[in-house]
């Protein structure tokens, strides 16, 4: 089918892009001022351990060989050891990745759905109070500074009102309690997740709302909308069945294009709420000079962005037959 061919083509493009990122990162880590060995090997290690790691990472080889080692290590998941945790980097990032994906994708999907829904309503009430309020609200939430919004939410809802935990993802007393069922545990995660989720959601849904609104207004001027009207369809059907599916396409595009920007926000949110995700791990690794962990987290985030892009593109192709066929 055409859709699989399309996905295949995108996958190849993504692989090329990723390969370039991989290579540039390699060059940066080897050619930046300072000693590349001390960047990859914990200075506190015993000499034997260090020796072993150096030969494993190929750090005693010429640059070309090092690159091959680097590629091999990447594909076998060997990113060295974290200075801070003293554990293999791969274990740390595997543990963090699901948390990031959970928070990030939930927020983006929720923001897109709500943005599309409200944008449709705003366009329908163009010029009325509903529209003005929604547009203004969207403008404000879209431009508010994310870390600040996060801090304010913590201050109001976690500190003053005490509705939600201030930080973290899990409460120890729930997770260490052998009697707690899976449901209680889920509720606990959800309880921790509400505020970071709200932060990411608020930052994103405004721009989707604005795009949907203007796209809807453009779509309503299309000839096929006139056809739908002439066919004697009800306004509701015209709006939901004929205009909205077309108008939502630019929103999907914009979700894809802004993914890289969104993941910045993801990292900030994780850091503020101490959500144990990969973005926070990157920020901490950088501030602790934990190079192996920083490098691997960055690569993994790049993979997350690229794959999310693929998902968005596939969704677009699914929604727009002009691409699918």
């Amino acid at each position: 089918m055409e859709l699989t061919r399309y996905i295949g083509r995108r996958l190849i493009q993504i692989a090329i892009i990723f390969f370039v990122i991989l290579t540039v990162l390699f060059l940066l880590f080897r050619l930046a001022p300072g000693d590349p060995v001390s960047r990859m090997v914990d200075p506190d290690m015993t000499p034997e351990d260090a020796e072993f790691l150096i030969s494993q990472l190929g750090l005693d080889q010429p640059l070309g060989m090092q690159y091959l080692y680097y590629l091999k290590n990447f594909f076998t998941g060997n990113f060295g050891e974290s200075f801070h945790y003293g554990q293999p980097v791969i274990e740390i990032i595997w543990a963090r990745l699901p948390n990031t994906i959970l928070l990030f994708t939930t927020a983006i999907i929720l923001a897109a759905l709500v943005g599309i829904f409200l944008g449709k309503i705003a366009s329908w009430h163009k010029g009325e109070t509903t529209d003005t309020l929604m547009t203004l609200g969207a403008l404000v939430t879209h431009t508010v500074f994310l870390p600040w919004l996060g801090l304010i939410l913590i201050w109001v809802f976690a500190y003053k009102l005490d509705w939600f935990p201030i930080t973290g993802m899990l409460s120890e007393e729930v997770w260490l309690d052998p009697g707690a069922g899976i449901f209680t545990k889920l509720i606990d995660v959800l309880h921790h997740m509400i505020l970071p989720l709200a932060t990411l959601f608020f930052i994103h849904f405004g721009s989707y709302l604005l795009i949907m609104r203007s796209s809807m207004l453009e779509t309503l001027k299309e000839d096929y909308i006139l056809t739908a009207r002439a066919k004697g369809l009800q306004e509701k059907v015209i709006r939901n069945h004929h205009a909205a599916p077309n108008a939502a396409l630019p929103v999907v595009t914009s979700v894809g294009l802004s993914l890289a920007f969104s993941i910045n926000g993801g990292a900030l949110t994780e850091t503020i709420f101490t959500w144990p995700g990969i973005g926070r791990e990157l920020v901490m690794a950088v501030s602790q000079n934990d190079y192996p962990l920083a490098q691997a987290s960055f690569l993994l985030i790049a993979i997350v962005v690229l794959l999310s892009n693929l998902v968005v593109d596939t969704l677009y192709a699914y929604l727009d037959p002009r691409i699918r066929y």
């Binding site: 940066l28 001022p33 920007f261 690229l306």
Partner: peptide, 20 residues
């Protein structure tokens, strides 16, 4: 352009400040 477009700028600056 496509390639740079998918790079999260903030995190790129972070990595660079780790190195430099």
């Amino acid at each position: 352009a496509d390639m740079i477009m998918v790079m999260p700028t903030l995190l790129v600056v972070l990595i660079l400040s780790a190195l430099f």
